[in-house]
Design a protein around this nucleic acid. Structure first.
Lengths: 349, 349
DNA sequence: AAATCCGATGACAACGCTGTCATACTAACC
DNA sequence: GGTTAGTATGACAGCGTTGTCATCGGATTT
C-alpha cells in the first residue's frame, strides 16, 4: 500500500540512491538505468514522501503564499494560479493570510522559513511592498518572489512580477476622456498599497496629456473596499460641481460607487460614468456591468510560483556557482481596458 | 538560529525524550521537570520541526480542506475558519480545490493520505456528500469531518457538521408568505448538492403549512451561480402569471435574479421580492441589499477543523481503546433569517 | 527490612529520504 | 596493454523527531 524508495530500488535492482537520483533528475545516470528505475516508479505508483525529503534534504517541497487582502476573488485567483504551478512540479501550497498592520508577520515568516516548512514564498501587496518584510526575508536567506506594482522599489537582483498600474490607469482615464468627460473624480485605494499611487499617477498623466488640470477636490483618499467606494462617491457627488465620471481604484470600490449613485438616484452611465480596476468576476455582476481593467491574477500568480520553484530547484544544481549578483528575472503585466456598460458619453452641459 | 529539540534538552538538562514528552503533553513527567523544559522551550523559542515529526510519528501535522466551489467568499471563509483552529494547535492547512466531476479526486485523496501529508480532512459539499468519495476515505482509514446539509445520509459513527438548510429555507419562505406573497418562484441550486434538495424541502413545507400548493412551473432547476440566477429569473418573470417573489437558492443566484429584474425594469421590492441564502459579504453590496439567511461559514469551518484535530490527537492517547463504534460527534447549525431590502409586501393585485 | 510495584527518565532504533564520499566501471589515451 | 580520466553506482551517515523498551529510584506492601 505504502510504497517507499526501497521498494522501487528493489524492483529496479539498484540502490536507493540511484532511485533518488532519477526522481530528482540528477545527471550521471545511464539512460538504461534511468529507464529501469522509471519503470519501477510507474509500476508501483511511487511518490516520494514529502516529510522525509524535507528532513533529509533540508529543502522543502512546499511554498507559501503570503497575503493580507480582503478581496476574496483576488485571493482565490492567486491561490489557484499558484496551485497550478505547484501541481505540475509536485509541490504543495501553504496559504498564509496575515495582518499587515500587526507585528506578528515577522515571527510567522521566521517560523515558516526556519523550520524549513517552505522552499520559497510568494508575496502579494501590501507585504510585497513593505521594506521591513523584505528585509526580514533577505536576512532569512529564503527565496521569494514579489508581486508588486511597477512603481515599487526593487533591487536589480530580485525576481518579481510587476503590474503596470500606471499604464492601465492611464488607459482607463483616457477612455473616460475620449467619452468627453472633463471632470473625473478619483477614489484612491489604501495608502499601504503602492498600486494606489501607481493608479493615481496614470490618472494624472492622462489628464495632463489632455491638458486638464488635476483638481484636488476630485481626488479622494480611501481604501480598496466597497464601503470606501460608497463613502467616496457620496462625497464626490455631493459637491457643488460634481464630476461626470468616477475612477474607482478597484472593482469593489466601483461597486460601492454604483451603490451610492443608486442611492442618490443618479443614472449610470447616463448622468455618471464609473470605472473600476481588476476585472474581478464581480464586475460582471453589478448593474450596469463595470468598465474596468483586466488584471490577470491567475496568470500572475502562476508565473510567480513558477519563478519561486525554479529558484528552489536552482539551489541544488547551481548553488556554488556565480556570486548571486545576476539580475533577477522580472515579468511585467499590464492590465487591459475592458469596456462594459458603466461608462458612457459625458452628459451634455 | 535554528533551535532543535537537542538544544532544549541540553538547556533543560534532560534527555530529548523528556522534552518530546513535554511538548506532546504526555503524562509521566514530574511537574518540576515539566517546568524546567517548558522554560527552556520558551527561552529558546523552540518549535518542533514539522517534517521530522511527520516522519517519526507517522502522524502528520497538517490537515487538508477539500472543496469544489466557485464561490470565492464561501471558500475564503472556510479557509480562514480552519486556519484559526489550526493555528491554535500548531497545525498547517493544505488547501485542495478539486473538480467534483473528474475522477482525479480519488487519486489525489490517496496521495494526500498515503504519503502521510495530512492528519485529517475537512470536506465541503459536494465532496462531503458524494458516497464514493466517502467510501474511498473510509478505506484509507483517515480521519475526516464532513460539512453537509442536514438531510444528507450519514452513519452514526461519523463526525460531521450539519447545516439545517430546510429549517432556514422554511423561515425564508415564511418571511415571504407573511409579506403577503402567494406566488413564490424557487430557483434550485446544482443537483450535485444535497443542500439544493434541503432548501427546496423547506420551501415546500412552508407553502404547505400556509395551505398553498406548490406549482411546478414556479420551481426551476439551476446551479449555484449568478448566471443561473439571471436565466431562472428571466424565465420566471416571463411567464403569463409571474410570481411576486423569488427564492434564489443562494446569494449569487439572488444577485443574478436582481440583475434580471433590472433588465426587465421591474422594481425591487416594489413589484418583486427576492431572497437569497448564505449572507455572503456580497449580499450587502447589491442594490437593494439582499434579504437572506446567514450561514456562519467561518464558525462552521472552525468547528469542523477542531473536530478533525481532536480526532487526530485522540489516536495517540486512546487508539487501542474502544471498538471505534461510538456515536460520532454531530454539530448543527441553522442559518438565520436576515431581513434587508430586497423583500417587501406583495404588490396589490 | 526485604520484596514488589509503579512513576519518571533515558538510550537507542526507526521513519524515508538526501548528501557525501568511496568504489567500480568504461572509455580514451599514449 | 596499461594507465588515466571520467562517469556511474552504492554504502553509509545523518536530518529532528517519536516509539519502544530498559533502567533507576522511591513508595508501598509484607
Amino acid at each position: 500500500m505504502k510504497v517507499t524508495i526501497n521498494d522501487v530500488a528493489a524492483r529496479a535492482g539498484v540502490s536507493i540512491k540511484t532511485v533518488s537520483r532519477v526522481i530528482n533528475n540528477e545527471p550521471s545516470v545511464r539512460p538504461a538505468t534511468r529507464k529501469k528505475v522509471q519503470d519501477a516508479v510507474d509500476a508501483l505508483h511511487y511518490q516520494p514522501n514529502l516529510a522525509a525529503r524535507n528532513l533529509a534534504g533540508s529543502r522543502a517541497y512546499t511554498i507559501a503564499l503570503i497575503y493580507d487582502n480582503p478581496n476574496a476573488y483576488y485571493v482565490i485567483n492567486m491561490q489557484n494560479g499558484i496551485l497550478d504551478a505547484c501541481k505540475a512540479r509536485g509541490y504543495e501550497l501553504l496559504i498564509h493570510p496575515s495582518n499587515s498592520r500587526s507585528e506578528s508577520v515577522y515571527q510567522e515568516l521566521e517560523d515558516l522559513v526556519l523550520h524549513s516548512k517552505v522552499a520559497g514564498l510568494v508575496l502579494t501587496p501590501p507585504f510585497s511592498e513593505t521594506p521591513s518584510v523584505i528585509d526580514t526575508l533577505k536576512k532569512l536567506n529564503v527565496d521569494y518572489v514579489r508581486i508588486v506594482s511597477k512603481t515599487a522599489d526593487l533591487e536589480d537582483s530580485e525576481d518579481c512580477i510587476q503590474v503596470d498600474d500606471t499604464a492601465a490607469a492611464f488607459d482607463l482615464t483616457q477612455h473616460l476622456l475620449q467619452l468627453g468627460h472633463k471632470r473625473i473624480g478619483f477614489l484612491c485605494g489604501g495608502e499601504e498599497h503602492v498600486s494606489t499611487y501607481g493608479r493615481l499617477e496614470g490618472y494624472r498623466q492622462a489628464l495632463e496629456q489632455a491638458g486638464i488640470p488635476v483638481e484636488d477636490d476630485l481626488v479622494l483618499k480611501g481604501e480598496y473596499s466597497f464601503d470606501s467606494g460608497v463613502q467616496g462617491a457620496k462625497k464626490l457627488l455631493g459637491q457643488d460641481n460634481p464630476p461626470t465620471a468616477i475612477f474607482a481604484s478597484n472593482d469593489e470600490m466601483a461597486a460601492g460607487a454604483l451603490f451610492a449613485a443608486r442611492l442618490m438616484n443618479i443614472d449610470i452611465p447616463g448622468q455618471l460614468s464609473i470605472v473600476g480596476f481588476e476585472d474581478s468576476p464581480f464586475s460582471r455582476q453589478t448593474w450596469p456591468k463595470l468598465t474596468t481593467a483586466h488584471q490577470p491574477n491567475n496568470e500572475i500568480a502562476k508565473c510567480a510560483a513558477a519563478l519561486v520553484l525554479s529558484k528552489a530547484r536552482g539551489h541544488t544544481a547551481a548553488e556554488s556557482g556565480s556570486a548571486s549578483k545576476e539580475a533577477g528575472i522580472k515579468r511585467e503585466f499590464t492590465p487591459e481596458l475592458v469596456v462594459r456598460d458603466s461608462s458612457g458619453p459625458a452628459p451634455a452641459e
